[in-house]
Design a protein around this nucleic acid. Structure first.
Lengths: 206, 206, 206, 206
DNA sequence: TATGAATGAGAATTCATTCAT
DNA sequence: AATGAATGAATTCTCATTCAT
């Protein structure tokens, strides 16, 4: 049987279209990108797109899901590795930075498109942010139990943790040169700020 | 001469259209809003819009400029009032919170639309963020000169200051209930974090 | 005020589009007719169509409504004129024949489209046939009260009355030459059949 | 040689596709039915359809031909059985009734699709109605020769005979509840009407 | 023969913008 | 200046048909 092979081919073609879409959408934004352009970049016919995606929005969702997977996987990885808080902070900030610079220029569009599209917000939040925060909260609870993190609401910590990075990313995405050019300084400042805010002082003083 | 009067009339009509556009765009997003809808809300004919704005994008820019003016004006006000750093932090966070809740639901759309539209980013950054950061930097230099702010790069401080608030706002806009429902706790935590990061310890220790 | 004038212009333009649509649809069927073709025949731009009709189906409904109006109006006219049954039968058959030959080649498409389109059937029946049968039943009740029509269910009579004409029209529409070429003979046969079936024998025997 | 066997297989597969098509088309109408749906129902691949039918329209024609065959076969059967006119009328009306209720919901679509599609009318009339009327005329001539049917144009009789049934069927197909719910009454009325119109009075009086 | 992924022409519909009045 | 009907380019999506395997 070559059903498995078929499935691989299908997956490959799907990924080929997603990759093309990421490129074009990152360049022009989602709404300004036409199916024709995505198809051209993927080197398939327009109609072929619709053999793999229900409609244009479905492509956006597929991209979002792909980005999310990485995000949540990272958090689970950190948890599984029993990472120290300080190491995790360092890792997390560095990783997100890399995404913007190289890996995921698409993120700018995803965040923007989501905010701009009231009908999309709920769906994206549910599929991306909720699971990510859920994983983060779980990880923070573990750290709290270990005494690494000061006691408090893990949900609040998770969001306080994400906020400055998200904010800096946003500024970065908007083309703020100062943030871009001095990222190490920002990363350090934010990392220190987060650590001083979240660390269990009692513990660290010992 | 009634040229002055004419100009006032023109300004009033222009503002009438902007106000209508803000309403409709805040409800539906920019791309989903038609000129027809804006014209209907403003109670003018479709064609009339084009006597006051070059095209649809021009309306968005006008809105953005208007919002910015307020932002920059606030910063200048803080500077003119010789506000203390701690008061300013409190004011700033409270103010941005109010914007999301009541005053400027349009901000969500503006941020989103901007990020989603790569061609718009540069323009908006130059017209909105650059002047705002410029004013903030100026204000921070003043505070530094007064010894309220620890010595350092005022540009970096300005962005570090804006980042967590911008991040929390983004989460808020995406419908994160925890942020929305515990805003005072977030405001306090962020405020404290910013103060401990920016305050001139030497000064405060005296 | 020229509001009235405006309204007339709008009505005229709407009718112009309907007329064009009737022509093209009668030639090709509804599903095979494109908006582009209708627009071209009406000598307007494609988009103009949508200033007067919500969508393509809406054009079909407008046509159907127009045809119906005539039908129901005829029935009310017959009733108002206190027509004799035999005169009415003659008039009715002759009239419907004329419709097929000259006035309403569109009817063929309307009937066909309706039957072929399960979603359209209910709507068309409600808007066209129900009122027509309602008027017919009312007229027949009047005739019954006058003793011209034998006693019975007026609803049944109305449908028995319409059936052979509708059937012959269908054959005619399908291009049956014998029906087309011998219409007078058919008309007489059907008329006699209907009269012998519906007439109050007691009355006519007197 | 297994050529005969091959041919049987081919025929069976063809019929399998026709049966599937009848089901799906009866449910949704012809134009709303896709080759994909027919293929899925027939449990074959899309492309396979094209080994048995030239194109989509060809499937419709095949269905029409099949229905016709039954029709004409019935007429020949009646002729062969030397049916009495009154029995035939009864049989015919009952049979057509059953078709609508249970056996051939596809007929509604066929009639509708045909009328809606001017290019199809000629072909269908030639393939379906002409042979059917031919057979009917032949049968009626036989009845005439036997003195059961009054003298006259058998072509006219054939169509006069079909018209009211066709008309009632059309009303029934359009969802007329009164016709549907009182079918026996209609059947009897139409039967009686037809008999009184066609019977050889001289003969029956004897 | 059977498959079903790929194709791409073609359709309905939208809407920013124009321009005659 | 104001109007709003007309425009038509542009877009998403469908689906009959083909063809390499």
């Amino acid at each position: 049987m070559n059903k498995r092979f078929q499935k691989q081919l299908t997956q490959a073609r799907r990924q080929q279209i997603i990759d093309a879409a990421v490129q074009v959408i990152a360049e022009q934004g989602f709404q300004n990108t036409t199916i024709k352009q995505i198809a051209a970049r993927a080197e398939v016919a327009d109609g072929t797109i619709y053999n793999y995606f229900k409609n244009k929005d479905d492509i956006l969702l597929a991209i979002i899901r792909q980005v999310t997977e990485v995000e949540v996987r990272d958090l689970h990885f950190a948890e599984a590795q029993q990472m120290k808080l300080s190491d995790f902070v360092h890792e997390y900030v560095a990783h997100r930075m890399a995404e913007v610079d190289e890996g995921y220029p698409i993120m700018k569009v995803l965040i923007g498109e989501t905010l701009a599209n009231p009908q999309l917000v709920q769906q994206v939040y549910d599929e991306v942010y909720r699971p990510a925060f859920g994983a983060a909260e779980h990880f923070f609870q573990q750290l709290m139990a270990q005494g690494q993190l000061r006691n408090g609401d893990p949900a609040l910590f998770a969001r306080l943790f994400a906020a400055p990075v998200l904010g800096l990313l946003t500024l970065r995405m908007m083309g703020d040169d100062h943030v871009a050019e001095n990222w190490p300084a920002y990363a350090e400042a934010v990392g220190n700020g987060l650590l001083s805010m979240l660390e269990n002082k009692a513990n660290s003083e010992k």
